[in-house]
C-alpha cells in the first residue's frame, strides 16, 4: 500500500512515519504550512523546515499553504491529499494523532470522501512507552514551542531526552499536562530519525518567550552526514 504521511515536523508524525515504513510503502510526506500560529489542525513552529526533513529522509514532499482558519483549513488539507494522490498515487494517509478526536475525525472524514485509507498508528498509545521508544530508536527531537504552565524559557530548544521525560512526568502529575504534548502544551521538531539518511544541524536559532508561551525559531539549518 502506498502511503503519504501528514508531517508537521514534530515527533509524532515522524514516528508514525517510521511505523508506516515498517509495514507499508511510504511514498511522500505531506505538509500544511499554516500562517496561523493558533491553527486548530496543524502545528506551526518550524513547519517551514519540513522540506529539509523530507530531503533528509529522501522522500518527496507535497506542501500546501493554508491560512489556518478553523474549518477552512480542512479544504487546504483536502487539496493537499488530492495533490498527493495525483502526484504520488497514494492509497492512504498516515497521521501522528494520539488523542485528538478533533484532528483524527476531520482527517478521517476527508480521507473517506476521497476514497483514501487513513491510519493513526499512535492512536491511544501508552504515552510513556512511546516516548521511551522514540528515544530508544534514536530520534533526536527538540522542544520547538511551549504553550502552557509550567514550561519556562529554558525548555526552548531543549532536547527531548530521558531527563526531559522525567520532568515531563512530574509536570503531568502536578499540572495535568499530557506527557506527549498532545494537549498543545508543547511542540517538537525532529533533527534526526532512524530513517533519515542525513541529520539536521541547527546553524542559527532564536527564542521568543512570554508568560508560559514561547517559540524556538530555527532560522538557519543544514543537512550533515550521520
Amino acid at each position: 500500500m502506498r502511503l503519504g504521511v501528514l508531517c508537521s515536523g514534530g515527533k509524532d508524525s515522524l514516528f508514525a512515519c517510521m511505523m508506516a515504513m515498517e509495514r507499508e510503502e511510504v511514498v511522500c510526506l505531506i505538509a500544511l504550512r499554516s500562517r496561523n500560529e493558533e491553527s486548530y489542525m496543524f502545528h506551526t513552529p518550524n513547519v517551514s523546515l519540513v522540506p529539509l526533513q523530507a530531503e533528509a529522509a529522501e522522500l518527496p514532499l507535497v506542501e500546501m499553504p493554508t491560512e489556518g482558519m478553523e474549518e477552512e483549513e480542512l479544504e487546504d488539507l483536502r487539496a493537499a491529499l488530492v495533490c498527493a494522490r495525483e502526484k504520488h498515487r497514494i492509497d492512504g494517509v498516515v497521521t501522528g494523532a494520539i488523542l485528538s478526536i478533533y484532528q483524527a475525525a476531520r482527517v478521517q472524514r476527508i480521507c473517506n470522501t476521497l476514497g483514501l485509507w487513513c491510519f493513526n498508528p499512535l492512536w491511544y498509545t501508552d504515552q510513556e512507552s512511546y516516548l521511551d521508544s522514540l528515544i530508544r530508536n534514536g530520534f533526536r527531537v527538540i522542544i520547538s514551542g511551549v504553550f502552557s504552565e509550567p514550561f519556562d524559557e529554558k525548555w526552548l530548544g531543549r532536547p527531548l531526552d530521558r531527563a526531559s521525560v522525567v520532568l515531563l512526568n512530574q509536570y503531568r502529575e502536578r499540572y495535568g499536562i499530557t506527557l506527549t504534548g498532545e494537549g498543545g502544551e508543547y511542540e517538537t521538531f525532529v533533527l534526526d530519525a532512524p530513517f533519515f539518511k542525513k541529520r539536521i544541524e541547527i546553524v542559527e536559532a532564536s527564542s521568543e518567550y512570554h508568560n508560559y508561551r514561547g517559540f524556538y525559531r530555527i532560522t538557519g539549518a543544514r543537512l550533515v552526514g550521520k
Partner: peptide
C-alpha cells in the same frame, strides 16, 4: 496480519 490497523484498533483494546 501485522497491518498498521493493528496499532490503532487492537493495541488500545489490549491495554
Amino acid at each position: 496480519n501485522g497491518s498498521l490497523g493493528f496499532d490503532e484498533f487492537v493495541r488500545p483494546v489490549a491495554r
